[in-house]
Design a protein around this nucleic acid. Sequence first.
DNA 1: TGACATGTCAAACAAATGTTTTAATTATTT
DNA 2: AAATAATTAAAACATTTGTTTGACATGTCA
Lengths: 275, 275
Amino acid sequence: MNLKPVESRELRVESQKQRAKRQAQTALDPRHSTLDQTRRQLLEAAGEVFAEIGFRNATVREICRRAGANVAAVNYHFGDKESLYAEVLRDSQQKAFEKYPPLLGVAADAPPEEKLRAFIQSFLLRIFDSGSITRFGKMMSREMVEPTGALDLLLEVRIRPMADQLRGLVSEILGGSPDDEEVRLCCFSVVSQCVFFHHCRTMITRLFPDQRLDASAVAPLAGHIARFSLAAMKHLPDPEPSRSKPVPALPRGVAEANVRRKPADLTPRGKRRRR
Amino acid sequence: MNLKPVESRELRVESQKQRAKRQAQTALDPRHSTLDQTRRQLLEAAGEVFAEIGFRNATVREICRRAGANVAAVNYHFGDKESLYAEVLRDSQQKAFEKYPPLLGVAADAPPEEKLRAFIQSFLLRIFDSGSITRFGKMMSREMVEPTGALDLLLEVRIRPMADQLRGLVSEILGGSPDDEEVRLCCFSVVSQCVFFHHCRTMITRLFPDQRLDASAVAPLAGHIARFSLAAMKHLPDPEPSRSKPVPALPRGVAEANVRRKPADLTPRGKRRRR
DNA sequence: TGACATGTCAAACAAATGTTTTAATTATTT
DNA sequence: AAATAATTAAAACATTTGTTTGACATGTCA
């Protein structure tokens, strides 16, 4: 007799439905039901491990050990390691945005500058919140350089709406349509400053050991990013004659020369002479 | 008889020395010597694989297959997989900075604004150069979220000097000491906009499929980053009364308030006013 | 109570993978 | 050419790791 209910995705889902039904009967709050205890502990342990060392480096054995469960537990409750991962990512994302919505609590009729500040603030809070919330940020960092299938889900339900929201704000501040190239670039500039502390934490800490990167750093960092970005957007020089004539916008000769792989022109001002 | 020369690090080094000696006698350019052909092919293949899928996911079997070498070749020529990785990282870093030095060819007496532009430009060129150069960027992205021992080397010889250089530029533009908090924050802002296209390439491409992210994108992107950053630094409002009094700088209550989903007053200190 | 579904556990499986071994081959030196 | 060192090759080794198996326990409900 094969009791294992994880044979196929359908069976798995069915099983969960049944469990959910039972829970509704036995416990008001499913999060405190004694029934899925193992499942919840796995989710918690997996959250720790995945955030800490990533999907690939995490072993189901370590996860089960921390959850106080048998090695087979992951496959029984989630089907396989990958599904567990997807569930953890979904779960941590939900908690992160539940606690820190993109505009925090700012009034709907507040000026866009204020909303932008809140946007930045919430972004950093999701990263530096002390506790399990930071898992979302850590997992996302890894997803950026090594995306899994789990990312696609988040993209449409979370990331794209946030991107649209930001584009709206920036276009209000800048004046113009959210679809302008200029707006997109400024959104990149704003977001990049936020995610920087995600991705480069290692480097930052090594270069500047005294740089604080925890919840207490959110206020000053968010303050700077908002000030910097608003100053930039308020005083951005005319969107240079961009489209019409393709301006090199820089060292003129340098860029093209390098793109064409002509090392000859690379050191124009007779700078470094080696070999 | 044990011929294997990889027994210890010392033996390995010696062996390489001897090889180098022979090469000097048999070929003028060691890069074209037929002697280390396998070694060079391993380095090349490993560069591809490590950049593409990272250290952990890469298998020595795949690397050897691409190099047309036996599985044992990695261990023979480099000792182990990790040493090979370190060598690849060192090598790609050297090539990247050889081709695109931090200030490109800008004159030593050029104004700091121009140097900053070159700094940004070279940063992006190292990322978007078409060809093997981009490996450095890809490997560094991974090092950020999952650093290996190989990073420590680069840090002191490459990254820190670059950071110091940037701090010098920014402090010139901003006026003030390179050690100012304000300078550091602005450096973060500049660098973050550059590395963004490293780290979030996946996300950017999915959100904006038409956004070009190759060599042809360097000029417009670098142009924007420089314009944005210079505008910000030239018009940065007074470094708010930060340090002295530990100001919540923002929400204070907001985070908590929002947990309860109360659209609270986000802007506590009447610090910023729009003009 | 007995039948049945659900969950847990120890053991084993199967595949992947870094590394080593041993022998054969090639190049260099004497 | 002989001897010696360097390199390559095939096979095997030793571990790790995701997954599966089959027995056993537990709780639910007729």
